[in-house]
């Protein structure tokens, strides 16, 4: 574990989570959620869990962002909060 790398990624994680939940445009919210997923993937690769990092990059960040975008395109893009 590299301490400074760890601290920087954890700070970015909290920032990405708060922004993803507070943006009113749901499409940009989904994209920021994808950024959050790739940050978590970096954190896992840094912790030595490369198998979990691969899975997160494909399934967590990739597929769940696609699912969010598909749902948003079929429903409404604006959110009230």
């Amino acid at each position: 574990m590299i301490l400074s790398f760890d601290i920087i990624i954890l700070i970015f994680l909290i920032v990405a989570a708060v922004i993803a939940l507070n943006v009113k445009d749901l499409l940009s919210s989904a994209m920021i959620y994808g950024i959050y997923g790739f940050l978590i993937c970096l954190l896992w690769a840094e912790m030595g869990a490369v198998d979990v990092a691969f899975t997160e990059a494909t399934v967590g960040a990739g597929v769940s962002t696609v699912l969010f975008i598909a749902t948003i395109l079929n429903t409404r893009r604006r959110s009230s909060d």
Binding site: S29, Y36, L43, G48, A49, S79, S80
Partner: peptide, 26 residues
Amino acid sequence: NNLIKKMMGLAIFQTAIILFYVSLGV
């Protein structure tokens, strides 16, 4: 208030727990 935002929060909650467990193996 938005259901999609709620689902996003659920996913973030889950990744936090997974992070905790993986960090136990470091």
